[in-house]
């Protein structure tokens, strides 16, 4: 019990410190120099930051959606089709991105894009599109883990019953299977979205000039020591996440 409290303190104290110091008047340093909101003001006048946030939101929306589509197909294949040609390779390919260091995924994808350009002689514009491809590849593995568990747990006799009552396979999928797995699809989408919003390394490799994502901008600011503004940004992100999770928890609770 004691260790548990200690463990949670370890998880939360650093984050709380970010929030507290975002209201500090001083530029850097831990000495408290009075309450101030000036760093929040500075944040809203930072156009590059707003642009990067919009880029990240766009990338995350597209990648999460693509990853859920492809990942659900893959999960269904892994759960329902016991044997097909190249199943072993397929299952390695679906699990490996989970543990592959990001820097390797990022570098190899960039080299792929460059090689495509070389071989096909076409100009591949590096920007939102290439980052979406990279993030989708990363997120598929996470989607598979979530959807696969749900598909494995579900009661197949419901589908059988629908078929026996004369429904066509497509209709069975849309009216029986999809509603059952939809909570899993939603949590997979949210996880993929968060992963994409959070990624610095893969985006740095695969994007091009002019399409910086939010983490890339944060990383640059940390290096140039613009700390109070980042504290303010962190506080906004943390509050957003906390409020969404609490809201989700409340809604779930009420439904029960």
């Amino acid at each position: 019990m004691f260790f548990m409290v200690l463990g949670y303190a370890f998880l939360y104290l650093p984050i709380i410190s970010l929030v507290v110091y975002s209201f500090n008047d001083s530029y850097g340093g831990a000495v408290w120099e009075g309450f101030s909101l000036k760093w929040y003001g500075a944040l809203f006048h930072n156009n590059r930051l707003i642009e990067a946030t919009l880029t990240s939101l766009q990338v995350a929306t597209y990648s999460a959606t693509l990853a859920v589509l492809l990942g659900t197909l893959a999960a269904a294949a892994l759960v329902r089709i016991k044997r097909f040609r190249g199943r072993t390779i397929f299952s390695v390919l679906t699990a490996a991105p989970l543990v592959m260091p990001e820097i390797i995924t990022g570098l190899s994808l960039l080299l792929l894009f460059v090689a495509f350009q070389d071989m096909l002689g076409i100009n591949i514009h590096r920007g939102i599109g290439t980052v979406v491809i990279a993030h989708t590849t990363l997120c598929i593995a996470y989607v598979i883990i979530i959807v696969r568990t749900r598909l494995g747990d579900m009661d197949r006799s419901l589908e059988e019953a629908a078929l026996d009552l004369g429904a066509k396979p497509l209709k069975v999928f849309l009216t029986v299977t999809l509603p059952i797995i939809s909570p899993a699809l939603l949590s997979a989408w949210l996880l993929a979205f968060a992963l994409s919003m959070d990624d610095l390394v893969i985006a740095s490799f695969t994007t091009g000039p002019g399409s910086s994502t939010l983490p890339m901008l944060i990383f640059a600011s940390i290096r140039f020591n613009m700390t109070p503004e980042i504290n303010a940004l962190a506080t906004i992100i943390i509050s957003f996440v906390a409020v969404s999770v609490l809201l989700a928890g409340y809604l779930l609770h009420r439904r029960k």
Binding site: L73, A77, F84, I133, T136, T137, E159
Partner: peptide
Amino acid sequence: SIVRSPLWIVVLPYIWLVLFFLIPFLIV
């Protein structure tokens, strides 16, 4: 009457992962 999952569902993710996960390593 068990729903037979059609084999094509594996094709798209398979192609995607081979193209964007496996082939990049060969290029590296």
